[in-house]
Design a protein around this nucleic acid. Structure first.
Lengths: 135, 135
DNA sequence: ATTGTAATTAACGTTAACGTAAACCTGTAC
DNA sequence: GTACAGGTTTACGTTAACGTTAATTACAAT
């Protein structure tokens, strides 16, 4: 029996704490059509599949996907699971993100070099100040 | 004589086309205190130093810096480059940014790895589909 | 003189992803 | 029974970085 058994249920606050987000965010994801938990009376009850969905949403965000993009992927998966079309759409999206990340890497390298320059000039001027050359 | 000679001037539309942004954006950067081009009558005239600034702004954006953060950096660089206090403040700032950039590098590496995983699983499932194992 | 192109300021509109406040219900603890 | 800790809906507020008119100006060509 696993800790995250299939019939374990969660309140909204529990999930919020576990993933370090606010209940508001979770309700917002539902409002955007990304989750649809069941209810007990008026209270939301989350099953393990909902928890997994939430995890996927957050990972998507970390990967730089917007909620709308995540929803697109979910919808495709829900309507036609494991279809070649859906898988290829997914691949296309990851490729895109990869390109963005590569661009960012390049930019960071360049900025690092510039930081080196600025820093070097700073240190030089500081040294001259201390030698009293400018005072 | 370089193509981007020191006394070459640019109209706002030229810069916009060169960097593939709108004139509105350039005016907005000025409004935020990131640039201050000179004027001919009421028209903005950009020199090479302005062009360089714009380049830096856009690189900052690609790096995920907000315009406010870029402005902070500019202000530091512009203000009193000869005072020891300012120089050391600048050094501290660059060190901080360097730390942030290193963190971002790490994050990007991790995201890349995650993308690799997602992609690999996609390709596997696609392969199985094509072998007719699921059909 | 008119058309066209590029520039200007001013000011309201937009998007994403929630934050925040109000007013309410509800089960458990004391 | 009352306080409290959680849950609920509704709905307006927030931030960044521009977009999008509108109304006007100025110069260049036909």
């Amino acid at each position: 029996m696993n800790k995250h058994d299939d019939d374990t249920t969660y309140a909204i606050g529990e999930l919020a704490r576990e993933f370090d987000i606010t209940p508001r965010s979770i309700r917002f994801y539902e409002e955007q059509g990304l989750m649809s938990p069941s209810r007990t009376g008026q209270n939301r009850v989350y099953l393990n599949k909902d928890r997994v969905r939430l995890k996927l949403i957050l990972r998507g965000k970390r990967l730089g996907f917007s909620l709308a993009e995540v929803k697109t992927l979910f919808d495709m998966y829900d309507s036609n699971p494991n279809s070649a079309v859906q898988l290829e759409a997914m691949l296309e999206m990851t490729e895109q993100k990869r390109a963005v990340l590569n661009q960012q890497l390049e930019d960071i390298q360049m900025l690092m070099t510039e930081l080196d320059d600025v820093e070097a000039r700073c240190r030089e001027e500081l040294a001259e100040l201390k030698r009293g050359k400018i005072a």
